[in-house]
């Protein structure tokens, strides 16, 4: 699988991506990563590790201090409108218009994403797929729980049908069952050939479905492992040790970042 995907062009690529905020905080330091079609890349990292910063750079919400973020080969900060045609985004806390129903929200954001061909039945199918109860379709969003909003968010991403998907801690705050369902859905999308970059705190779920796991600490990608490399490894221990910052030399394989370049 590894050999096969490397031949293909990556759909999401960070090249020497660095972000220093106005107040001098270096949130991201020379990040290198690639996500190919049919891959899930899980960014692990504690609060403030730089996960959201990475995703914001891909979405042109912030400008990189140096380096580039490419979506389908398009520099996201040089040609954001073109780049964003190729990516769907689900934030850690999907917020929609409270006075609109689920349907109205989905309709608006999907058409904003450039998809005009859908009928109501298509929206319904997507909402059913993500597991939203039918009764909620025409209810106003202001009464929705966080889980229901996340479901709407992923439905919108599915309907946008972009080749790449950015997920920023999509399961944080969800109950275990909802989290599991969400994860399964992400796995399905990968199987459909999407390139998925997902930030998360959830080590076990990351290990379960990811093709690559990267550990981000203080803006530095301190480790990157393929799924195969993680077989039999206690990822939790690895994570904690990397977070503490003293495993770099002792681990034979070392950060996979080197292999990529």
């Amino acid at each position: 699988m590894n050999n096969e995907t490397i031949k293909q062009a990556p759909l999401l690529e960070a090249r020497n991506l660095t972000k220093v905020y106005e107040d001098g905080v270096k949130a991201l330091d020379n990040l290198q990563l690639r996500v190919h079609p049919g891959e899930i890349f899980a960014m692990l990292g504690g609060n403030g590790a730089g996960k959201t910063t990475t995703i914001n750079l891909f979405l042109d919400f912030i400008q990189p201090t140096s380096g580039h973020a490419f979506i389908n080969g398009i520099d996201a900060n040089a040609d954001p409108l073109e780049a964003k045609k190729n990516v769907a985004f689900v934030s850690e806390n999907v917020q929609l218009y409270p006075n609109f129903t689920a349907m109205q929200n989905v309709d608006f954001f999907v058409r904003l994403g450039g998809r005009h061909q859908y009928k109501r039945s298509d929206y319904e199918a997507a909402l059913v797929r993500v597991g939203l109860q039918r009764e909620a379709f025409d209810k106003k969003l202001k009464d929705f729980s966080k889980g229901m909003r996340q479901k709407c968010g992923i439905a919108i991403a599915i309907l946008k049908d972009a080749p790449a998907i950015l997920l920023d801690e999509p399961t944080s705050g969800l109950d275990p069952k909802a989290g599991k369902e969400f994860t399964r859905l992400v796995g399905d999308l990968r199987d459909e050939g999407k390139a998925i970059l997902m930030s998360t705190h959830d080590i076990f779920r990351a290990k379960e479905i990811s093709d690559h796991v990267g550990i981000l600490n203080g803006g530095v990608l301190v480790a990157q492992k393929t799924n195969a490399e993680l077989k039999g490894v206690n990822l939790e221990q690895l994570y904690v040790e990397y977070m503490a910052g003293y495993m770099e030399e002792t681990l034979e394989t070392g950060p996979l970042t080197n292999n990529l370049t």
């Binding site: 964003k84 769907a88 934030s91 450039g114």
Partner: peptide, 14 residues
């Protein structure tokens, strides 16, 4: 504040 701005601008909107 709602977060809808981010979602809207994750799309090709100028």
């Amino acid at each position: 504040e709602n977060g809808t701005l981010k979602l809207a601008f994750s799309n090709p909107v100028s």
